[in-house]
Design a protein around this nucleic acid. Structure first.
Lengths: 199, 199
DNA sequence: GTGTACATGTAATCCGTTACATGATTCC
DNA sequence: GGAATCATGTAACGGATTACATGTACAC
């Protein structure tokens, strides 16, 4: 586990993944407020990661600034709205997030699939309620798929956004798969009910 | 927080999902120790939810006992091993978890897909590293699929386990889809690299 | 004048993990 | 004798959320 390359052998302060995610949002070079970051994260990260709350974004930004990975300045309310603090990534921040992206160990995806937990407890449920849960999940998945699809279309052909666009495509397929899995399971349940000795 | 009656529409103390998961493990009627629960949860819940740590299982069990949803007794070390505390679900517990499974609002699955977060930051990565990340993820997914597949085979045709078996089947398909999505994205990246003006 | 979007932050709380402590038994 | 597994728990910590507080501008 020795990373002698990359000029600086300092072992990166162990920031949580969320910090890197926020710094990642800034790594595209734009100067953004906490509010902006939250909205953007809702539309992008949300599809494959998760979107931190406002309060966490604000505290994360403070931490990044203290670490020297970001700087901020106040923007006067030129027209409407009130004071606004915008953040920009620093050179150190860019180096750090790049190093993280390249060298951090990859931990497996975290999945907490509520609907499946419920169906796993099928012996406690009425079949109708099970179908409802699956139908609800199917709708959720299709909704997410549509959002991803729309966002892929919105994303221009710009080189800068090639990889974010790629992950949107991935998300579109992922939620299509989730939808199909719900359908398949609905069919499985139907079969199970049919084959069950007269209830 | 007044628990005046039973069997009425009392609004269930707001236990976290993990409590319900543990109570769910007990809802199959077996008498189990914290240690057993952890091992079982690693092989079952892990595939679609997540497996709490030992320490959390132990504290969750204490909470369930205090709430009256489970009881425990000490088992003497008849042969080998030391004292063991085994838990069993109570009637109230069974009622509660059933009510929860039937009526609790379904919140969307939580996905924190580390690999995708990294690829979203593709502009910071060397193409080779990106392929490595995807290959690693592909392997992870295939590994999980194989485990699910094996567990489906292990699970007998017993009626009691019909729904757990169903979710195992779901997991098998889910991880197959994850594997295929990794392959598709690998191909997408290959194409992107080919089409990129001479780097 | 009421609601909604913009905009930032604090406090309380809780969920969950890691590290640590302990100790018996079994296998090599 | 030493490692691995069984077995249970405490303490410290940190990640993240909800609720709350505050205030502006604009649309209806």
């Amino acid at each position: 586990m020795d990373e002698t390359t990359e000029g600086a052998p300092e072992p990166l302060p162990g920031l949580p993944a969320t910090s890197w995610a926020v710094l990642g949002l800034l790594s595209f070079g734009r100067e953004l407020s906490g509010y902006d970051l939250k909205k953007w994260s809702d539309r992008s990260l949300r599809l494959f990661y998760w979107s931190p709350s406002f309060s966490q974004i604000y505290s994360e930004l403070k931490r990044l600034e203290k670490t020297g990975y970001a700087t901020s300045r106040l923007v006067a309310p030129e027209s409407g709205t009130r004071d606004k603090r915008v953040y920009r990534i620093t050179d150190e921040g860019l180096t750090a997030v790049r190093t993280w992206a390249r060298t951090a160990p990859l931990d497996p995806p975290v999945l907490k699939h509520g609907p499946m937990l419920r169906l796993w407890l099928g012996h406690l449920l009425e079949p109708d309620r099970m179908r409802e849960i699956l139908a609800g999940h199917r709708e959720y998945a299709e909704g997410m798929r549509l959002r991803a699809e729309a966002d892929v279309a919105d994303a221009g052909a710009d080189e800068t956004w090639a990889y974010p666009r790629l992950t949107l495509t991935w998300a579109e397929r992922y939620y299509a798969a989730e939808r199909d899995l719900a359908d398949a399971m609905l069919a499985d349940i139907e079969r199970l009910e049919r084959e069950r000795p007269g209830d």
